[in-house]
């Protein structure tokens, strides 16, 4: 059963066609990775999926869908007088989540309670991304949309974030839609991949959809990526 059905999606920004003729389905409790070069429209498509941008074609979410959204790295002013607790409490109040739920969301992403006293502009990239994921988890979403959640985070931090996201999918049977530039993450965690390229889109399981030819077509140049297969 699909949680999302997208047919012939088209998005224009300022008179320029950014996305055209994109069609894919997202089965429940699966992980879809969206890949493509910079400027291919990955973030734009995510914004259209959450209803933030006008579009043509069909975007149909299942009736029981509750979205959690983690945007691309946000530039927060360092002196913004909002700390992690203010931010999390605001969502908890909007979503009707208890303080126990806030604590559970923090535990899920491995963020210490003490970090909440830090202004969000002073948090490290990894801390803030984890806070954003904890924030998205409040309100019990069954679909998590993440736009390059590990961007700007150091390598160990990235590995931990990927484990967190994968863990959430396992423990909460959550559907995950993830924009990523990291093909190893795509091969490791995604059930399906949607590639947005300069010459159209492709969709399917990573191992069959991401052939060297497809990758070259999507990125406009050959990618030296080797997939290990174990018999």
């Amino acid at each position: 059963m699909n949680v999302l059905e997208v047919q012939d999606l088209g998005i224009r920004l300022g008179g320029t066609e950014v996305i055209r003729g994109v069609t894919f389905n997202l089965p429940r409790a699966s992980c879809l990775a969206v890949i493509g070069p910079n400027g291919a429209g990955k973030t734009v498509m995510l914004r259209a999926l959450i209803g933030a941008l006008p579009h043509t074609g069909k975007i149909a979410w299942a009736a029981d869908t509750v979205l959690g959204y983690v945007p691309q790295r946000l530039d927060i002013e360092r002196d913004l007088p909002l700390n992690g607790r203010d931010f999390l409490r605001a969502k908890a109040a909007l979503a009707g989540s208890s303080s126990a739920m806030q604590a559970a969301a923090l535990r899920s992403v491995g963020l210490a309670e003490e970090v909440l006293a830090t202004p969000i502009g002073n948090m490290s990239g990894g801390q803030f991304q984890r806070l954003l994921i904890a924030f998205a988890l409040l309100g019990n979403p069954n679909v998590l949309l993440l736009d390059e959640p590990a961007a700007g985070v150091d390598a160990p931090g990235q590995a931990h974030l990927n484990e967190v996201i994968h863990g959430l999918q396992d423990t909460h049977a959550m559907t995950v839609l993830l924009v990523s530039h990291d093909l190893s993450v795509v091969y490791r965690y995604a059930d399906h991949v949607l590639c947005l390229g300069r010459h159209g889109a492709c969709f399917g399981p990573p191992r069959s959809a991401l052939t060297p030819e497809t990758l070259q077509e999507v990125y406009g140049q050959p990618l030296g990526f080797h997939v290990h297969t174990h018999a």
Binding site: I50, Y69, L74
Partner: peptide
């Protein structure tokens, strides 16, 4: 507060 940090997060 949520709107201030990100309009998209606020929408969801």
């Amino acid at each position: 507060v949520v709107r201030l940090v990100s309009p998209e997060i606020a929408m969801t």
